[in-house]
Simulated scan of single mutants.
Amino acid sequence: MKTITITNQKGGTGKTSLTLLLAYGLADTGHTVLVIDLDQQCDASYLLTRGAYNSSQTSYEVLAEEQPLRPEEVYSTIAGGIDLVPASPRLNRLDTVLAGKLDVQFRLSDALDELETDYDYVLIDTPPAINFAVQNALTAADGLIIPVQADLLSLKGMQTLESVVKQIRRRSNPRLKIYGVAVMRYQAQTIFARSISQALDQISEELDTKTYNHTIREATAVKEAENAFSSLYEYAKNAPVTEDARGLLKEIMEDLEHD
């Protein structure tokens, strides 16, 4: 089982969209996938279940109450091959609940030990923050993928994340690596976006990683597929943005398979 965290401190970079693109794509290639939603907005949970899950049995209970994760306690989703540990709005008080307690960053990794042989991949969707939920996600992960937009604030978020990754490697997860940076909602026709992309490559190199070659262009089909509770690969099979997603998925799978 390989665990991948999708995170960026900046909001609006496409974390949930990237999580779903990867989940659907990996499931379509025959892999078993578990999505863990740690974002209090619960978007991934809603899109994967139409909101049909028990709101008292979520990732909040796993982190706040050390509730174990067993196969029978994981939710099936509307997509074949994808299971879910849903989020809860109560995650917004997680830091207060865990304040002063020891080793809280290991709670998710300890819970995942129960599922080690049940899934090929675990994808963790995170909030736009550096909090206990994200610390748990990074401590539990084999590696992370950083979704960004081609803008200055995404660059700033990457630089902040770099220091957090160094701390996590030093204190709780020395194996943590950054698989790569995925550019989302890209508008190639703008000079600004192209210039920012060059800066992204430079920062990626400083992070000892890379920017993936395939970018996900700005396209209404992504949101339309989510609104239809559907995989982009099924909803818009031949759309240019779907080809973007297939190319990015291939790059990421090559990294995961050779890690």
Rank of each mutant, 00 (worst) to 15 (best):
K2S: 09
I6H: 03
Q9V: 15
K10Y: 01
G12D: 11
G14I: 05
L18G: 08
L18C: 09
Y24Q: 06
A27G: 07
Y46L: 10
A52I: 05
Q57Y: 14
S59M: 03
E72P: 11
E73T: 15
I78T: 07
A79Q: 13
G81K: 06
D83V: 06
L84R: 00
R90F: 14
D95H: 00
T96A: 15
V104W: 12
L108Y: 10
S109A: 12
D110E: 13
D113I: 12
D118Y: 03
D118N: 11
Y119N: 05
Y119V: 01
D120C: 02
L123H: 09
L123Q: 08
D125W: 07
A129L: 01
A129S: 12
I130K: 05
N131R: 00
N131T: 02
N131Y: 05
F132D: 06
V134W: 00
N136W: 02
A137L: 06
V148M: 01
G157V: 05
M158V: 12
M158I: 14
T160F: 00
E162M: 06
V165P: 05
I168C: 01
I168Q: 00
N173H: 00
R175N: 04
K177A: 11
Y179I: 07
A182S: 05
V183D: 07
Y186D: 08
A188V: 12
I203E: 10
D208K: 13
T211L: 02
Y212H: 11
E218T: 10
A219D: 13
A221N: 04
A225N: 10
E226F: 12
L232W: 11
Y233W: 04
P240L: 07
T242M: 06
E243I: 14
E243W: 11
K250N: 14
D259K: 05
D259R: 04
